[in-house]
Nucleic acid binder design. Structure first.
Length: 926
RNA sequence: GGGCGGAUAGCUCAGUUGGGAGAGCGCAGCCCUUACAAGGCUGAGGUCACAGGUUCGAUCCCUGUUCCGCCUACCA
């Protein structure tokens, strides 16, 4: 910029490229280089290694970057710990899709090769999101980048698992868990997304087994599960069914005899009041089954297809049934077939539309199946207690506070966490089984050799198998000495490792210097949708294993939606691709937009047009800087800082405003009000610095001006401060401009963040300046309203309220004339309005612009009348208020005083407007 | 079913010790003014969702209603 002709338009592309490179080379964001500084630490919410940057990441990381850059400039040893997580199910799905397209499967590859393949893929593609974060300008400490499957983090996972087990907080048990038949794994409760769906409620007749006529009619939304029914239940208080309890019914299609039982769980109001009981496929039915000792039939296999296990009689003996034809069908195909068959047999009594919530896999949207399998669980309530307490007591502060309720609600009703996953990508559970000790507690299955791979043996350990949990694989069984030992095939929930992130990334379980220095971290920035998944679990694990909270504050930001308020999703096709936006409008404009919209407690509705406005802001800043640099002409404005006496009004004013905006910005950032901070800076740069200060500085900057040097100093000082204030929001453009500022050093990223005390608040300058702005505004309004060409010079007269105002106006005649486009200005307390002039009535003055022959006085008359009406309305309102005897009695004195003054001012204004109107009438009469 | 949030200019949104509401975009008018037309100046545009209550005074606090989001939940 310093050499050649700088472009009038800011071109972000090459600039961003260059600075990214530069920051990287300088290691500017590497923490721990100066231990004398106080530490400040944020850990990134690790994005999925499979992921690519979406708008939510962009917001989340922009806000973190603002905080980190701010703190770094403000003298902290700022560590922003980056990394990714291995996203077990999601990543496995990606690779499986790849294999599928190659005509392969993970089974044909085998576990070991499959995992090798994922690692290879991770090395090649897994860096995408990290590159994109760098593109966004994220000032992470990239040298410290971690991955949840790293050796170190894996050690942390192992250690935590073993210790939890030692402390009795882990157990393995057979429970009905949420099962995704597509991913073929268990999920935790919060990984199930409930969605309302249009379904059907089918009423089915189960005939009595004895010869008596009729039977019971049950209602169900899932007729295919009837194959696994082991009872029909009614409410014990239900008079309709008193005779039925104890009887037996014949399960249609299957032919199994099942009992009618009484259980108070059954609602008399719902459906027919009779409930088919399927302990194998419904959590409530499972409980009923336990209460009544009912057999449990698992009619589905892990893929959601019908197995043959339902072909049993009431004694559990194989049953020869026509229902055998359903074996092998997919659960929905089976449903369709069964409904059809029931209808044919005349057992389908009714079919009605019914809307109900269905659980879906959050990874693949497949409807969840309640599925009875042995799984590992973490006992949560002992961990939840302390985690609730630290939030209650404010050791961990949740911002905005409203999310505390959500947190408490979940934590107080927390259920045990199913952490085992039946997939291959992830941390293998450190539990082993002795094949000899458990020989009666395992099931061996064999898959046949196929064209695509060898056959293999699969061993499933039954719920009562005895595990050996250890940090290292045992060579022999500690009980029987056998070396026939097999590791648990399951891996851990990805969130299990994420829960350790704030300390595992810092080196735990080793007592590292980083851990000592940066833990607890200062703030976690995230969105509410992972409050349970991640935030709550980090607090629990931090307290358990570090004995301390993982972070002092949690800032929960909004969710980004599209302009219609819809959640952005690929299927809706309404995603805004942040990379595309950055490409087109520049990263800084995009970041500034996100910050400006990040008001607390509300979602962000983003559309691309809104980013445009902030692109313009970048350009404005660019051009103001161009102007400044042109005037500095490559040399630092030398000399001692100008004294107050050397400065003119505009200079004192802009420094006073700067001091105010610094203070406000800091306050806003301190309380995570990013939108306020962005708004204040925008207002300051555009509407104070550019609109007023720069315009008033122009004459003083002229080559011939004796004040030129002072002006240059102030100009440089203010722009420099503004750039530093803006840097956390707009790192690239500020770095670019700053680098061209005379005397700038290494990088603006390490320049000090401005402090309000560096400049003085100058109320006198501010109030005098307001007078100037009032005068200029008055002339401009008249010009604007009568549509006078901007270039046309006119003269103006100002009658000021008091001599002091006259003095100020006269002292700044030159500025006023320049800004208002005047060739002549006359000021005084008793200036008379010339004939044929338009009038602006202002609080401290009246402005007259003689326009004889230029103005339609009829219009001027209407304008004045309109304003009188406005003033009149205000006066009536205020008069009513003052007329209320209670008002002066009960309202605070200063408020009453203020109202009285306002009334006086309005009366005064009305009088002056009426006079102006009166004179216009005279013109009309001429 | 339970809980949380929202309703303010044409659009998107700000607005805390309660004292007659602001911004950006859009719109209209005038201007290529030597940093910037991605610009400058000016203007129009509001029953602060509705109904009550508290108060001298309510966009703001309380209650209810309507509409819209979201979270959560084992009546099939």
């Amino acid at each position: 910029m310093g050499s050649g002709t700088p472009s009038k338009q800011y071109d972000p592309g090459p600039v961003e490229e260059r600075w990214r490179e530069y920051w990287n080379q300088l290691d500017l964001f590497h923490a721990g280089q100066d231990l004398s500084k106080p530490p400040f630490c944020i850990v990134i919410p690790p994005p999925n290694v499979t992921g690519s940057l979406h708008i939510g990441h962009a917001l989340n990381n922009t806000l973190q970057d603002i905080l980190v850059r701010w703190k770094r400039m403000d003298g902290y040893d700022a560590l922003w710990m980056p990394g990714t997580d291995h996203a077990g199910i999601a990543t496995q799905n990606v690779i499986e899709r790849q294999l599928h397209s190659e005509g392969l499967s993970r089974e044909s590859l085998g576990r070991e090769q499959f995992v090798v393949r994922i690692w290879k893929w991770k090395q090649e593609v897994g860096g995408t999101i990290i590159r994109q974060l760098k593109r966004l300008g994220a000032s992470c400490d990239w040298k410290r980048e971690r991955f949840t499957m790293d050796e170190g983090l894996s050690r942390a996972v192992l250690e935590v698992f073993v210790r939890l087990h030692e402390d009795g907080l882990l157990y393995r048990a057979e429970r009905q868990v949420n099962w995704c038949p597509r991913c073929e794994t268990a999920l935790s409760d919060i990984e199930v997304v409930h969605e309302e769906r249009e379904g059907k409620l089918w009423h089915i007749l189960y005939p009595f087994a004895d010869d008596s006529a009729g039977g019971l009619i049950v209602a169900t939304t899932r007729p295919e599960t009837m194959l696994a029914d082991t009872a029909v239940a009614v409410n014990p208080e239900d008079e309709r069914y008193v005779g039925a309890v104890g009887k037996t019914v014949i399960l249609p299609l299957v032919g199994r005899r099942i009992p009618v039982i009484a259980d108070s769980y059954v609602s008399r109001e719902f459906g027919t009041g009779a409930l088919k009981v399927t302990p194998g496929h419904d959590p409530n039915d499972y409980e009923i089954g336990r209460r009544h000792g009912l057999p449990i039939i698992n009619a589905l296999d892990s893929k959601g297809n019908l197995s043959q296990k339902f072909l049993v009689d009431d004694a559990g003996k194989p049953l020869d049934s026509p229902a055998a034809r359903y074996v092998g069908l997919d659960r929905y195909e089976a449903r369709r077939q069964i409904v059809e068959d029931l209808r044919e047999e005349g057992l389908l009594v009714k079919e009605e539309a019914y809307r109900h919530a269905v659980g879906h896999c959050y990874r693949c949207q497949t409807p969840i199946e309640p599925f009875l399998t042995p799984q590992w669980f973490v006992r949560m309530s002992p961990l939840a207690g302390p985690a609730i307490q630290v939030v209650e007591e404010g050791q961990v502060q949740i911002i905005p506070e409203t999310w505390k309720n959500t947190y408490f609600e979940w934590m107080r009703n927390i259920r045990d966490w199913c952490i085992s996953r039946q997939i291959w990508w992830g941390h293998r559970i450190p539990a082993w089984y002795c094949l000899s000790c458990n020989k009666d507690r395992l099931v061996r299955t064999y898959s046949a050799a196929t064209s695509e791979g060898r056959g293999s043996e699969h061993i499933t350990f039954l719920p009562d198998a005895v595990p050996i949990v250890a940090r290292q694989a045992p060579q022999t069984c500690p009980r029987c000495g056998s070396s026939q030992i097999e590791q648990d095939p399951d891996v851990l929930d990805t969130w299990f490792s994420s829960a350790l992130w704030p300390f595992s990334t810092l080196g735990w379980p080793e007592p590292t210097a980083d851990l000592k220095r940066y833990y607890p971290t200062d703030v976690l920035v995230t969105s509410f949708d992972i409050l349970f998944f991640w935030v709550a679990r980090m607090i629990m694990m931090g307290l358990k294993f570090m004995g301390d909270i993982p972070f002092r504050q949690v800032y929960i930001h909004a969710l980004v939606r599209d302009a219609e308020g819809q959640k952005m999703s690929k299927s809706r096709g309404n995603v805004i691709d942040p990379l595309e936006v950055m490409e087109r409008t520049g990263t800084d404009a995009f970041r500034f937009t996100l910050a400006a919209f990040a008001a607390q407690g509300r979602d962000i509705l983003l559309s691309e047009e809104r980013i445009e406005g902030y692109r313009h802001f970048c350009n404005k800043l660019w051009n103001a800087s161009r102007f400044t640099l042109m005037n500095l002409d490559g040399e630092a404005a030398a000399g001692a800082p100008p004294s107050r006496e050397e400065m003119d009004l505009a200079e004192r004013w802009i420094l006073s405003r700067l001091s105010a905006v610094v203070e406000n910005t800091r306050q806003s950032l301190d309380s995570y009000k990013f939108n306020e901070a962005a708004g204040q800076l925008y207002q300051f740069v555009w509407h104070e610095f550019c609109d007023w200060y720069l315009e008033m500085a122009k004459p003083r900057l002229a080559q011939s001006s004796p004040e030129r040097q002072t002006s240059r100093q102030i100009l440089q000082e203010v722009l420099d401060a503004a750039l530093r204030l803006l840097h956390p929001f707009m790192p690239f453009i500020t770095e670019e401009i700053w680098s061209h500022m005379p005397g700038s050093r290494q990088s603006i990223a390490t320049a000090p963040y401005p402090k309000a005390s560096e400049w003085v608040r100058d109320p006198e300058a501010e109030s005098k300046m307001n007078l100037i702005m009032e005068a200029v505004g008055g002339v401009r309004t008249i010009r604007g309203e009568i549509g006078m060409p901007t270039g046309k010079r006119v003269s103006a007269l100002i009658r000021a309220k008091d001599p002091e105002a006259v003095q100020i106006l006269e002292a700044h005649q030159r500025s006023i004339a320049l800004l208002a486009g005047l060739e002549k200005l006359e000021t005084g307390v008793s200036v008379q309005r010339p004939r044929g002039a338009a009038t602006a009535v202002l609080p401290d003055m009246e402005v007259y612009v003689p326009l004889l022959g230029l103005i339609d006085f009829q219009e001027e008359k209407q304008r004045l009348e309109k304003e009188i009406r406005k003033v009149q309305a205000d006066l009536e309102f205020i008069a009513r208020k003052l007329a209320n005897p209670n008002f002066p009695d009960r309202a605070p004195a200063d408020i009453v005083q203020k109202e009285k003054e306002a009334q006086q001012a309005l009366l005064d204004k009305r009088g002056r407007l009426e006079q102006a109107l009166h004179r216009v009438m005279e013109n009309l009469e001429d």
